[in-house]
Amino acid sequence: MVLRVLRLPTGKIAFAILLVIAALALFGPLLAFQDPLEGGAGILAGPSGAHPLGTDYLGRDVLSRLLAGSRISVLGAAQVTLVAMVVGVIPGILSVYLGSVFEWLTLRLADTLIALPFLVFAVAVTALLGNGIPQAMFTVGIMVSPLFYRVTRAATLAVARSPYVEAAIVSGATIGWVVRKHVWVKVLPPIAVALAHTAGVGFVVVSSLTFLGIGVQPPAPTWGGVLAADLGYLSFRPWAPLLPTALIMATVWACNLLADAIRDVSGEGGKALITAKGVRA
């Protein structure tokens, strides 16, 4: 699957961008050649030898802040995606097999989560659990998990009613057998698409939250934080928000490209479950 995705041009581009982003997350903080928290004399300076992207309103080096902030941003998005997947996929499969009570409960729960405005909810939860990236991202992950739940459930349902699954049941297969042998392969491609999609959403959310100052305390550098700081001083440095915006957009775009590429290489069984607009929920 990975190889087939890489054979597509969209897959190559997406992978290349994500690789750069991953490298930034890994090494970015080390590359930050100046202390991202240390202010300097010149505030809101233009690009110069010492500050290639200039300085912000406290005189901190913008490039260093972006590099240092990449890890938090990427890890945050990854956490959102991971939590959403684990919380969504397993009940999604089980809802088809564990009987009507479980099915009803999980469906209502998913509806409830979809109905809640997640940024507001995340703000409320961080107020309760303390303001930290893990708490905020965990909450957001749970909030977007209904996507995984619905995608997985739809795929599982379609497979569960097919004659080949009935043939397996008539031969005495257990639910575990059916899931391992027939369901799993069919739900993987739609999950992969949802994964890429959620990663994109995750970046936006992390950036939005840090932009609002939730999850990270103000001095800590993040992409969203840098963007927020730059937006306040547009009249001095009108071009400044472009770079953090470009970073966020490129990452989201790469995630969506990857989702498209996965959809294009999906097997016969899985393909039917993915529509042009994304995933059939």
Partner: peptide, 10 residues
């Protein structure tokens, strides 16, 4: 239905 009686991915 011979189309759907075998798992297309197996």
């Amino acid at each position: 239905d011979p189309l759907r009686s075998l798992d297309p991915d197996l």
